[in-house]
């Protein structure tokens, strides 16, 4: 029985280890101290009020939200038709196309980021909205295609054929049958892509400019230069945002299915 207790303790310790950094930013965000000190000498909301006055951070947050929405919309428009063809098609070269379109997920983001930087400089896209949108699409599109392909392939079998045999032309089959049945998958895709864009930092670091930056980049810069609990307040809010999206995902399709292959 000692072995069993030790095993239990090990599992608990590993769980704590895994969740500690995400959970601990929350008490830290209520710290009354001027620096990162554990345990905080007192609790206050000072960093939450300070946060709103940090104009650079707030502007970056607005940019990130807008950007994530744009990336989300663009990804759905581009990925939906592609995912339908790729999940259904039985043509030669299909596997190769899937590999090509999802390859950016496998490669080091730092390499992708550098490649974009070099190309964007030539076209004056650094620090511009089109540049950021394109840069985020590089990682969002593969995610979108992968999750949507899963959604298409888990559609109940033969229902589209049934609709077609009942007299529905292809476009009506899509609108009346395929799309409604895919809706949970589309919601999952939107949620994941939103987070991917909203959290993306490496590629953003390379393509943001002095006038236009994103929240993770602004946080990265802040943490690089100062260590006070202000970022803890921002982080706590981000953890809550992620948590709510996780719940949406879990309800819509199951998180494991959305992130796994």
């Amino acid at each position: 029985m000692i072995g069993r207790a030790a095993h239990r303790a090990l599992i608990a310790a590993l769980f704590l280890f895994l969740l500690a950094p995400v959970v601990l930013v929350i008490p830290m965000s209520f710290s009354a101290d001027a620096f990162l000190v554990w345990p905080p000498s007192g609790f206050s909301l000072r960093w939450y009020t300070a946060m709103w006055r940090e104009t650079k951070l707030m502007e970056a947050a607005r940019n990130s939200i807008l950007l994530a929405c744009l990336v989300c919309a663009a990804t759905l428009v581009l990925a939906m038709p592609a995912a339908l063809v790729l999940a259904r098609g039985r043509f030669r070269g299909r596997e190769a196309l899937v590999a090509l379109l999802t390859a950016p997920l496998l490669l080091p983001t730092i390499v992708l980021a550098l490649a974009l930087l070099i190309l964007f400089v030539g076209y004056g896209l650094i620090g511009s909205w089109p540049g950021l949108l394109l840069a985020h699409l590089l990682v969002a599109l593969p995610y979108g295609i992968r999750v949507l392909m899963t959604a298409v392939s888990t559609l109940p079998p033969a229902v589209e054929e049934a609709a077609s045999s009942l007299g529905a032309a292809p476009w009506r089959v899509f609108r009346r049958i395929t799309l409604p049945l895919m809706l949970p998958g589309v919601a999952a895709t939107a949620a994941i892509v939103f987070l991917v864009s909203f959290d993306e930092v490496v590629i953003s670091l390379f393509v943001v400019g002095p006038e236009l930056t994103t929240l993770p980049v602004a946080m990265f810069r802040y943490v690089e230069s100062r260590t006070d609990p202000l970022v803890a307040a921002v982080s706590a809010l981000l953890v809550l945002l992620t948590l709510s999206i996780v719940i949406v995902l879990e309800r819509a399709v199951g998180l494991g299915r959305a992130l796994g292959k």
Binding site: V22, F198, D199, F220
Partner: peptide, 12 residues
């Protein structure tokens, strides 16, 4: 935690 930004987790 996979969905939480690397910046936040590193800060943690």
């Amino acid at each position: 935690p996979l969905l939480v930004s690397a910046v936040v987790r590193t800060y943690g």
